[in-house]
């Protein structure tokens, strides 16, 4: 059964939607059969492609619409929204980043 669903999300990451979260997003999106697109003010990109997601250059506070269509759309949308809600598990990773920077002489 085909479904089409969408939700608004806001990028909560201080560093914006950079390479690591873009990778997580594309990986999650590829687990699903449905077409998954992210829509910003100026463009629409394929959520399964890290290159496409990076072209959004979505900074902290950017509003995006996640549009999903296909047989597993509802579950897929929930999974993608969960990533945004959890801030892509960024906290502990940022700490490592910062530590790396500060502890190096």
């Amino acid at each position: 059964m085909q479904q089409a669903v969408s939700r608004d999300v806001v990028v909560g990451l201080k560093q914006g939607l950079h390479a690591r979260p873009a990778d997580m997003l594309a990986r999650e999106a590829r687990k699903w059969q449905s077409r998954i697109e992210l829509v910003s003010k100026s463009q629409r990109v394929d959520g399964k492609s890290i290159l496409e997601v990076l072209t959004l250059a979505a900074e902290e506070g950017t509003r995006l619409v996640v549009e999903v269509a296909g047989p597993d759309a509802t579950e897929a949308l929930a999974a993608i929204v969960r990533l945004f809600d959890s801030n892509f598990h960024e906290n502990e990773e940022t700490a490592v980043d910062t530590a790396g920077r500060i502890t190096t002489p």
Binding site: K14, Q15, G16, H18, L54, T55, L56, A57, E59, E60
Partner: peptide, 10 residues
């Protein structure tokens, strides 16, 4: 300046 990095990636 995370914005610069994002725009370079873009």
């Amino acid at each position: 300046q995370p914005g610069q990095h994002l725009r370079a990636l873009e």
